[in-house]
């Protein structure tokens, strides 16, 4: 019987973890998104008063409403922030794929020893704090920064990149590159080299063999890499905040502004919930595709 209990405990622990650190905060945010702002501390209502028993619960539930969501739909600023965030993430993901695929492909063609070193090189940036690495980009992109010094050396006109949307894209591509390269590398490295030889033998040029065999077989990696980058980039806050300009519109910043500047906790929560719901669609698609590949 102890074995059965041990097993149940082993299963229960991660679920308990998820309950405490994911489900409860999520429920809290969902509840907040259905509240409305008041001039108080904390700045929202209704609040559940447990001392009043069932009557309190009823009153509390009655006080919740979807008005904040209606406001999100009608306010052009929120819609624009959503679209802009999706656009930023999509552009950066596309660039990441174009840069990351050749890197992963090249890595997978090396010998086993060299491959280990190359994987290490991809992971190495994680040894430095993310924040410091993004600050370093400020030093590179600022008007008298490293980039413009280098351009000056070769007598090219300086670029004014810091605090622009371009800088945000550069920062995101830089920061998320390992998340694109590693899943791609994982599928490409496993690929049986004789499949390419078979394609070549059956009449494909090297390019045709790539597009007809290597690439289709790497699609699970492409999907994994794109989603691993796209999903967190939509809600990215630090990079647009540090590298973007005042007109860079992204959801992470919108949530921050609502929460801390406007003290509109319900709006911030509703934006976060809609973001999660939007991203649930690609996540579900991805999992369906992975299940199909595995079967």
């Amino acid at each position: 019987m102890t074995g059965g209990r041990g097993r149940r405990l082993a299963i229960a622990l991660p679920y308990l973890w998820l309950l405490v650190f994911f489900a409860l905060p999520f429920a809290l945010v969902a509840k907040l998104s259905l509240s409305h702002t008041v001039l108080a501390m904390p700045p929202y209502a209704p609040r559940l008063d447990p001392s009043r028993g069932l009557a309190g619960v009823g009153e509390f539930l009655h006080g919740l409403s979807f008005t904040t969501y209606a406001r999100l739909g009608s306010d052009r600023l929120y819609v624009a922030a959503y679209l802009s965030s999706l656009r930023f993430a999509a552009i950066a993901t596309a660039i990441l794929l174009v840069i990351g695929y050749p890197i992963a492909y090249g890595m997978s063609r090396f010998g086993p020893r060299a491959r280990e070193a190359l994987v290490m090189a991809v992971i190495l940036p994680f040894w430095t704090s993310f924040l410091i690495r993004i600050y370093a980009w400020i030093a590179i992109l600022k008007p008298a920064g490293l980039l413009n010094q280098a351009l000056d050396l070769v007598h090219l006109a300086p670029l004014d990149l810091l605090d622009t949307n371009t800088a945000v894209i550069i920062g995101m591509v830089y920061a998320y590159l390992p998340f694109m390269v590693l899943p791609l590398y994982a599928v490409l490295e496993k690929q049986d080299a004789s499949l390419i030889e078979a394609a070549r033998d059956l009449g494909c040029t090297a390019t045709q063999a790539f597009w007809r065999v290597t690439f289709p077989l790497s699609l699970p990696g492409v999907g994994a890499g794109c989603l691993l980058c796209f999903i967190p980039m939509v809600g990215e806050f630090v990079i647009p905040d540090l590298l973007g300009g005042s007109r860079t519109l992204m959801l992470g910043r919108t949530i921050w502004t609502e929460f801390f500047a406007d003290r509109d906790w319900p709006a911030a929560s509703a934006v976060a919930i809609v973001l999660l719901a939007t991203l649930a669609i690609p996540i579900a698609l991805f999992q369906r595709q992975q299940a199909k590949v595995l079967s």
């Binding site: 004789s194 030889e197 078979a198 033998d201 040029t205 077989l217």
Partner: peptide, 16 residues
């Protein structure tokens, strides 16, 4: 390989 009139059957079969 693609310009040779040979065909190879691989030990692993190498089916796509």
């Amino acid at each position: 390989p693609h310009q040779r009139p040979t065909s190879m059957m691989f030990q692993s079969y190498a089916l796509f």
